[in-house]
Design a protein around this nucleic acid. Structure first.
Length: 594
RNA sequence: GCGUGCGUAGCUCAGUUGGAUAGAGCGUCUGGCUACGGACCAGAAGGUCGUGGGUUCGAAUCCUGUCGCACGCACCA
């Protein structure tokens, strides 16, 4: 469906041509003076120079031509040379009618859908999720949903850290605690047990303990390194143990990600890439892409155009061990073999930008990834506390994600309790248990996503969980309120489903709401194009505000005129759908009550 | 040292890619609402866009000098 801006631009462009100017000057944008107009065209000022005429004169000519055009309620030229436009309510009404019938609310879906792999999450097996994992999960999930909304085939991969030193640490710690386990008996020949030798809560305790111990006890650290090495060389006992650790940990991670409404299509990890490493490195050396330098194997990735120094990409350490880059490249080998995506998006901490530039260049130079494949790095900033420093626990330790969520949920619960007290109703425990996580999640995700991904932001529980202002709960509240009105309408014995015909705007606030509504596709497309979920937040916040403004001065349920009331119900439904669509793109959903 | 990013209201952030009087929220101040659609609404105060220069009809936005902060600069992930 054609967008409002395009329709107006088309008309303006024709008018410019008719007056003897180039078509390109007819470009129309949103007004930045809503008090004066809804849309504006600045082309007359640009044209003034080219045609050596006063801008006002040009604007006057164009506005005169369009004076009685049916699309406009008003079109005037003003002082320096702006053309100010208000569009006709009837046209707006028809536009909404089309928008409501369009499954994507007027968004232009990708003509040629792409296959895209989004690499996000980055959890480490056996280690608890912490604040650092929050942004990757939240931003990555939203990006995945946005890309998918525009028709692409998107594969989300958690890309677990499942092959590192933490495995050796756990194995050795377990060895010391339960030396009788068959995994540690060198003479054992039988099948290894199907039941895991440890639970998730044991593992949660064992890993940090082992990690601390390795820093104080050099001999233990050495043993852990050796165990890791043994595991990576396929020792059957350790492999059996590793599989148990994996399954226990994955189940727990899944549970935690589910709570965040973060769903991965693939649960691949570094270990999956290991089989590809030897051939890959050999091939890169054989084709002179990689070479030896100071005992290590490296790939030159510097370009003449680089302003900054670009160190070579290391793919094998001088001691023969592989690195993060090795595993990332081998992962690409596997992904190309299995999926051949046309685009990659990595969502990680922005401090890794240089590193990923190296990996991307290496992948292309080595021919692992085609030149035409786009490889994007979305780097996010740090989650800080109110002091502007990385968010920590009160004791100064790493903040676990679980605790962060509990902190938010607790704040939400207290607010709900307080509100219930004000209204003098009691808060049903069962109801609260359903609502609190939903509201908490909106607070957490909206608080994160409303910032630009690349910027650091301050994690402020009070601000995020506030039911007022630019927050997740405020958006949810708006949706819940609409649901409540629709319920009331149903209780009058009417069916909201039958209210499908829009009514032309008859108040300023109603028109403002409609104008914001038709802007959805612009906001969503900008978010899509720029990989910027914060644009969705900005938009749904505007829409919520416009809606609240409108409903405040409109008595919908008491309206006697049937057509008008039905038009409003249709409008409400569309606002609700668009808001729900918006929060779904952000990765959360609204409860029925709150 | 080299490089990258960022400096916008007391605080947290926007700013449609060069347009009119730089916008929101929180906080502060004033007013409305005994309401189950008020977790809201109306209004006020608050700014030399870090700072100096340049480009042009026009700059928070582009170029440049400078100050401050954060981050990164091959065998960690």
């Amino acid at each position: 469906m054609k967008k409002v801006l395009d329709s107006i631009t088309e008309v303006l462009s024709q008018a410019f041509v008719q007056c003897g100017y180039e078509e390109k000057y007819g470009k129309v944008g949103l007004s930045n003076r809503p008090d004066l107009c809804e849309y504006q065209c600045n082309g007359a000022m640009a044209a003034a120079k080219a045609y050596k005429k006063a801008p006002v004169q040009i604007a006057d000519e164009v506005a005169a031509v369009l004076k009685n055009h049916p699309l406009f309620e008003e079109i005037v030229s003003v002082k320096p040379g702006f053309i100010n436009i208000k569009i006709c309510g009837e046209f707006l009404k028809n536009q909404l009618q089309k928008m409501a019938a369009d499954g994507k609310f007027g968004c232009q879906i990708e003509q040629k859908p792409k296959k895209i792999i989004v690499d996000y999450g980055g959890a480490n097996v056996a280690k608890p999720l912490h604040v650092g994992h929050l942004r990757s999960a939240v931003i990555g999930e939203s990006i995945k949903r946005i890309k998918r909304f525009f028709g692409n085939q998107v594969i989300g991969d958690v890309h677990l850290g499942d092959w590192g030193l933490q495995m050796g640490l756990i194995i050795e710690e377990l060895h010391d605690r339960q030396p009788d386990l068959v995994y540690f008996d060198p003479n054992y020949q039988g099948e290894y047990p199907k039941e895991p030798p440890l639970t998730i809560s044991e593992m949660e305790e064992i890993y940090p303990a082992a990690s601390i111990r390795s820093k104080e006890d050099a001999a233990f650290a050495e043993r852990a390194h050796k165990a890791t090495f043994r595991l990576q060389n396929g020792d059957p006992a350790y492999m059996a143990l590793w599989k148990h650790i994996m399954s226990v940990s994955k189940a727990d991670l899944k549970k935690n990600y589910d709570r965040l409404h973060v769903n991965f299509d693939l649960w691949k990890g570094e270990s999956d890439a290991q089989p590809y490493i030897p051939d890959m490195i050999e091939d890169m050396i054989a084709r002179n892409v990689a070479y030896e330098s100071q005992g290590a194997i490296v790939v030159d990735v510097a370009l003449d155009t680089d302003a900054k120094e670009m160190p070579p990409c290391l793919i094998r350490k001088s001691d023969g061990a592989s690195l993060y880059a090795t595993s990332d490249l081998a992962t690409l080998v596997e992904r190309e073999k299995l999926y051949q995506p046309e685009e990659y998006i990595y969502v990680t901490d922005k401090r890794q930008e240089l590193y990923f530039t190296q990996v991307f260049r290496t992948a292309k130079k080595a021919g692992i990834v085609k030149e035409s494949t786009s490889m994007n790095f979305i780097g996010f900033g740090t989650v800080n506390g109110k002091d502007g420093k990385p968010y920590k626990t009160r004791e100064g330790g790493v903040m676990r994600l679980e605790n962060l969520i509990s902190e938010i949920d607790e704040a939400v619960y207290l607010k709900m309790e307080e509100n219930a007290r004000k209204k003098e109703v009691s808060l049903e425990r069962e109801e609260a248990e359903q609502i609190v996580p939903a509201v908490g999640l909106s607070a957490l995700k909206y608080g994160d996503l409303s910032n630009q991904p690349s910027k650091d932001y301050i994690f402020d529980v009070d601000k995020f969980t506030s039911f007022e202002g630019n927050t997740g709960p405020y958006i949810l509240y708006t949706i819940v309120r609409i649901k409540s009105i629709l319920n009331k309408y149903t209780k009058q014995g009417k069916n909201p489903e039958e209210a499908t015909v829009f009514y032309k705007p008859n108040s300023e606030s109603e028109k403002a709401l409609m104008l914001t509504l038709v802007r959805f596709s612009d906001a969503a497309e900008a978010a899509y194009r720029e990989i910027a979920p914060n644009k969705i937040c900005q938009y749904i916040y505007d829409l919520s505000n416009d809606f609240n403004h409108f409903y405040h001065e409109t008595k919908i349920i008491d309206e006697k005129e049937k057509e008008k009331q039905e038009g409003w119900i249709a409008l409400l439904k569309l606002v609700k759908q668009v808001l729900e669509c918006g929060i779904d793109l952000l990765g959360f959903s609204a409860p029925d009550k709150m």
